[in-house]
Design a protein around this nucleic acid. Sequence first.
DNA 1: TTGAACATTAACATGTAAGTCAGGCTTTGT
DNA 2: ACAAAGCCTGACTTACATGTTAATGTTCAA
Lengths: 122, 122
Amino acid sequence: MQAKEAAEKLEITQRMLRHYEKEGLMEVGRTLNGYRSYSAADLRRAGRIRDFIATGFSTREIRAMSACLSDEGSGPCEGGVEKLREKLEHIDRLRAELDDKRNVVIDRLAALQNRLASVSSR
Amino acid sequence: MQAKEAAEKLEITQRMLRHYEKEGLMEVGRTLNGYRSYSAADLRRAGRIRDFIATGFSTREIRAMSACLSDEGSGPCEGGVEKLREKLEHIDRLRAELDDKRNVVIDRLAALQNRLASVSSR
DNA sequence: TTGAACATTAACATGTAAGTCAGGCTTTGT
DNA sequence: ACAAAGCCTGACTTACATGTTAATGTTCAA
């Protein structure tokens, strides 16, 4: 698969696909004419990189746990587990707070609607 | 509480606390001598900002939902059912994004642990 | 064979998180 | 009174995601 199609499927730009390569996050084969050729595995890997970046990981961090990115991913990616756990903590803390906040709003909304209901039923 | 202690409790630098202010993400009171004085609420708010940034949100995005960051849903977070509903939409959208991000991490973690398990059981 | 659509690299640009350092004021302990 | 430690602002620096553009090569269809 050529660059354009790959980029479209991943909903990122070709620019970023090249960026991933230049940053050493993935390697992509070439056809005879020098064009990049993306395999299905390349797509999955690039998709993971995209998600990690969108989740606040730097290229440095992603590179550091590069082994954890491949489908088969053998090798030493133990350090990756640490980072994943940390990230999970961040996300979960945020989620918990968002949930609290959500309840505050819901309660208030309910209170408002109670008042409206009691007014309109008068 | 002064800057040093606040930064230590939040495990970020004073530099970043000042940064949050300059970016309009929070306001911090001053004592007579001009020193910043962080309240418990300030600490919580800064902690949320820290978590949002660590989760890949830009200052622009954080600023946009600034009202949802305070402890009390009061302030600009009130003003009738309309605003509350908007607020809820914001929060739910955020929660959805967070869940996506969380799933990315969880999937990877699960994949890693499957691999480790199958290796160690051999 | 010419043009459109695709590809390539390289260079330049922008926004922003984050570090660091300099120059200067304030507080506090000795 | 002096030194150490804190604070303040502002400026310089780096890293990095991402966009844009320019110059050029390749493929394909009319």
